[in-house]
Design a protein around this nucleic acid. Structure first.
Lengths: 212, 212
DNA sequence: TAATTATGTTACCGACTGGTCACATAATTT
DNA sequence: AAATTATGTGACCAGTCGGTAACATAATTA
């Protein structure tokens, strides 16, 4: 009794949320308005007000969707057992690589990240703040499963590299070059990983001052 | 004959450009429209079209202003002689610190950076792309004044740290937290510099495997 | 001083925005 | 089948957007 109906609240609501995602992925948040959503979902905008209470409501509802957030497992890229068996260096590199791939698969998420940095006192606050927080916590947790640390600045180092990754991924998504690098090319990212590798090698060297 | 005139093209044009800067600094690019600029400058918007040819034109003209871009000397923070006398590590740290301070003094520049990451095919392209490029080149040049290198990934490492700095500065400006850090606090930035210091120490350790 | 040019002001245009309403039509209940 | 509720549609509102034209006034030239 709920499949082929002409009028179906659930389906319509789902269409609206899908529309939000499509717009974010294809055009960014700048295009994300009531009228645009209604047009994309092929729905009267009055329904958006009735079902979600307005623009803010529908975006909040979209935020509840888990389709736009990578899972911990996806970021790990392997079983928890395999992961903790890696060296700290390899763990960081793995997270870096997988997190980037996860974002690449979710242009809408990248759009929201970019949005967050540009609209001051707005909807995104509740939308992403806690998610980012939990995401960072997950990373921290994954790293701290080991007793091994690099320095008392481990948290800041994680944040530095996370910030760099986010920035470069956004620019990749926006086709906005940075430091003359072609972020569309896999070779560029290979080199970036090489830089990462070098950084971590250096950090490890700090703990083994004598080469074996 | 050009000071106390009631009608003065130059002064009016200057007022318009100042208005652009004020809006960018206080409200970000989202508020940057013809009407808003005209209101801020207390000028009929027709003048913006007459003098600059429209929104794109006035923004381009603003881009020519040097009030929104840090000078090389400001980034160096000292004379060129003193600078090249520093170790590579200290040079990088100095650039990082001064570049952040320079951006902090120029919220409008940060706003443009953020804008660039969010508006896809737009005005900012010509506005910032080349400036960023030259800025990066300056950094590269400053670093490469020495024969010393860390690895074959020096360029990528510079880019990584630059991207991180940009991302964190934008979030500082937008009061958008990152990784649970309070970017408003100087202590946080001191810790970030500590992390930087650790990273560079590690890189140096790669070249002197024996501690003295 | 008179005529001309440059500068500033005002009113208006069509298109779009977020938002609300009354109404039509389908689905459910009685 | 009739009445009622839920869902979808269209018209409309005030406000803002970028953009243009006609006009007024000041500065400059003749």
């Amino acid at each position: 009794m709920s499949e082929k109906q002409v009028k179906n609240k659930e389906q319509t609501m789902a269409r609206i949320l899908v529309a939000v995602e499509e717009i974010l992925a294809e055009e960014g948040f700048g295009a994300l308005g009531i009228n645009r959503i209604a047009k994309q979902a092929d729905v009267g905008k009055a329904l958006i007000y009735r079902y979600f209470g307005g623009l803010e409501g529908v975006i909040d509802a979209y935020g509840e969707t888990d389709s736009f957030w990578p899972t911990v497992h996806e970021i790990r890229g392997m079983s928890k057992g395999d992961f903790v068996a890696l060296s700290l260096k390899d763990r960081c590199k793995t997270i870096f690589r997988n997190f980037r791939r996860a974002l690449k698969k979710r242009p809408h998420t990248v759009a929201i990240y970019a949005w967050e940095m540009v609209e001051k006192n707005d909807i995104t606050k509740n939308l992403i703040a806690n998610r980012t927080q939990t995401s960072i916590n997950v990373v921290q947790e994954m790293l701290s499963e080991s007793k091994q640390v690099y320095s008392k600045y481990d948290h800041e180092m994680t944040a530095l590299l996370g910030a760099a990754l986010l920035q470069l991924t956004i620019r990749e998504h926006m086709k906005s070059p940075f430091a003359g690098m072609d972020l569309d090319s896999e070779k560029t990212w290979d080199r970036i990983e090489g830089a990462l590798d070098t950084i971590f090698s250096g950090l490890e060297a700090l703990h083994k001052p004598q080469t074996s």
